[in-house]
Structures are given as structure tokens and as C-alpha cells.
């Protein structure tokens, strides 16, 4: 029996599933990370992922191409990012309440439009999602081929986005500005850069990524849209950002670790299902998120200006 549990780790299927499960979290965590690095907590994440899942799926269902679907999701995510930025950045309103409002608005609008467009569907209709793309040669390597190189293009996009965001944050003027906006916005303004603009672009970009993370669920992981399918992944991503200490490379690590445990529990559930009720397995990700936060919390150094609105021309 115990060997069965260990054997899971040596199946290529487990590792492939880990990567698959990690993808939406990778997008979402990167998105949240960009926002928070610039000083804005984006609690809109859960709703933005939800509407991203709906819009990407719906675009394809209405006849658009798969890549157009991703773009549509990103676009809608960006719009909610803009709404968030107007409130939290330009008006300096409470980031907590703004985020909750955006989450409520994004998810309810998503559900509303879904019901409006497809009022009578009882069983959710399906689309033809992204198909696995075997990387030539590499995919033929035993074990590693199946684990790493037989994924959908959307999956490769998630992995590429880690590299892109890493580069953006660490090697470009914009990334540097984001880091400064989250640490000491006055320093940024003193160098002649518009803090509100930098923060807004960060929130918009981050929100677009979150929506793409949602779209991954309906366009690559599954092939249909269900209500409540995001199921807390947004909140988990926020925990992962803290676990990742606001670094993209650690976000990837965190998402993989997390997804690995998730993939493992699904398989372990099949072995132990009779003994342990499935709900306890489903609780695991949420418990793990809290534990990850506890581990990270003590030594974490938050971006110093996180949650603090910047108001131009205010007397200091």
C-alpha cells in the first residue's frame, strides 16, 4: 500500500498533471505579484479570473479562434484592472473594498452575461479546447517527454510568461518603476515619473494576466464554463504571492509545489478514497495556502507602500 503512494511520484502523468494544474495559478500569481509590487493589493483576482474564464470560453464558443479567446479574456481582465485602478489608484479608495467590489462585479457580470447569452443550457455546452502540442524530438524522451513536452500551447505560454515577467520586473525601466512605486512612490515622482500611471498600468497588466489564468481553465484544462469553477484559486494565488516573496521565479516554484500537492492528492484520493472522504482532500489546497502564508510571514518583507494610496500634490 505505502509503495502505491510513493509510486505516484514516478509516473509521468503525475508530473504532467502538476504542470497543468499549476498554469492558472502561474498566470494569476504573476498578475497579483505585479499589482502588489507596485503597491496595490488586487482582491479583484477571484472575480477577474471568473469572468476571464467565461469570456475566453464564450469567444471561442461564438466562433472566435482559440488565441483570440485568450486575447478577449485578457482584454476584459484589463478593463476590470482599469476599474480597479481608477478607484484604488486615482481616487485612492480602500484597496480592500475596491478589490471586493471588483470581484463581486466581475463574477456577477460574468454569470449574468453567460445566462443572458445561453439562457436555456442545462448541461454546459463544450468547445474544442487547446490540444496538446508535442514538441518535436523532446516529446519522445521517455518519461520527461510525457511530463514536460506534451502540453497544450496555452501551457507553454504560462511558462513563457514567467520568463517575460521576470525580465520585465528585473531588467526594464518599467519594472524598476513598479518596484519603486511599491516601495517609496515619492522617490518615483521625484525622478519625474507619474506614480499613478505606473501603478495603473501595473494593475491593468496584472488583471489581464489573472483573466488569462481564468481562461486557461475553460480553454485548456477543461472545455466548458461552470459557475464557481475558479473555486478560490484567486485567493490561493494571493497566498502564493506572499509565499513567493514577490519574486516571479519563486511564484513559479510556489505554483508548481502547490499544484504538485494537488495532483498528488487527486491520485492519493483514488487510493484512499474509501477511507478518507473526498471533501478533506478538497480542503487541502486551502489549508496548504494558509500554512504557506504562515511559513512565509515571519521573514517576509512586504513592499513598503503596499495598501498606501499615493495622492499627488498632497501636503506631506
Amino acid at each position: 500500500m505505502i509503495f502505491d503512494f510513493i509510486e505516484i511520484l514516478f509516473t509521468a502523468g503525475f508530473w504532467a498533471a502538476t504542470i497543468r494544474i499549476a498554469c492558472p495559478l502561474i498566470f494569476a500569481t504573476l498578475g497579483e505579484l505585479i499589482c502588489e509590487r507596485s503597491g496595490v493589493l488586487n482582491l479583484g483576482i477571484e472575480g477577474i479570473m471568473s469572468i476571464g474564464a467565461m469570456v475566453g470560453w464564450m469567444a471561442v464558443y461564438q466562433g472566435a479562434g482559440l488565441y483570440s479567446g485568450i486575447l478577449a479574456a485578457a482584454f476584459v481582465g484589463a478593463i476590470f484592472g482599469l476599474i480597479h485602478a481608477i478607484f484604488s489608484v486615482y481616487l485612492g479608495a480602500s484597496q480592500h473594498v475596491t478589490g471586493i467590489g471588483v470581484t463581486m462585479l466581475a463574477s456577477s457580470l460574468g454569470f449574468f452575461s453567460f445566462k443572458l447569452i445561453l439562457p436555456y443550457s442545462t448541461t454546459p455546452p463544450k468547445i474544442e479546447p487547446f490540444q496538446p502540442l508535442d514538441i518535436p524530438l523532446l516529446s519522445d524522451i521517455p518519461f520527461f517527454g510525457e511530463a514536460l513536452f506534451q502540453h497544450t500551447p496555452f501551457t507553454y505560454l504560462a511558462l513563457a510568461s514567467v520568463i517575460i515577467i521576470f525580465w520585465l520586473i528585473n531588467s526594464t525601466p518599467f519594472g524598476l518603476s513598479i518596484k519603486m512605486a511599491g516601495e517609496n512612490p515619492m522617490a518615483l515622482e521625484a525622478q519625474g515619473i507619474d506614480v499613478l500611471f505606473v501603478r495603473s498600468v501595473a494593475v491593468i497588466l496584472g488583471s489581464a494576466l489573472m483573466a488569462v489564468g481564468g481562461a486557461y481553465l475553460t480553454m485548456s484544462a477543461f472545455d466548458a464554463f461552470y459557475f464557481g469553477m475558479v473555486n478560490g484559486r484567486g485567493w490561493i494565488a494571493i497566498a502564493l504571492v506572499i509565499f513567493a516573496t514577490w519574486k516571479p521565479e519563486r511564484a513559479l516554484l510556489g505554483a508548481l509545489l502547490f499544484a504538485g500537492l494537488d495532483a498528488y492528492q487527486v491520485r492519493a484520493q483514488q487510493l484512499a478514497g474509501a477511507v478518507v472522504p473526498y471533501q478533506f482532500f478538497l480542503m487541502m489546497p486551502f489549508f496548504l495556502s494558509i500554512i504557506a502564508m504562515i511559513i512565509a510571514a515571519k521573514k517576509t518583507r512586504y513592499p513598503k507602500a503596499l495598501l498606501i494610496p499615493f495622492r499627488r500634490g498632497e501636503r506631506h
Partner: peptide, 18 residues
């Protein structure tokens, strides 16, 4: 009140905005 970001290096604080 110094307008510097503590989490960045001296050089990064200088080149930002250039």
C-alpha cells in the same frame, strides 16, 4: 525626507527615469 527606494541599489535609484 529622502526620496529613495530602500529595496533597490544605488545605481537603480539613480538611473530610474532616465
Amino acid at each position: 525626507h529622502f526620496t529613495l527606494a530602500d529595496n533597490l541599489t544605488v545605481l537603480e535609484n539613480i538611473i530610474i527615469g532616465e
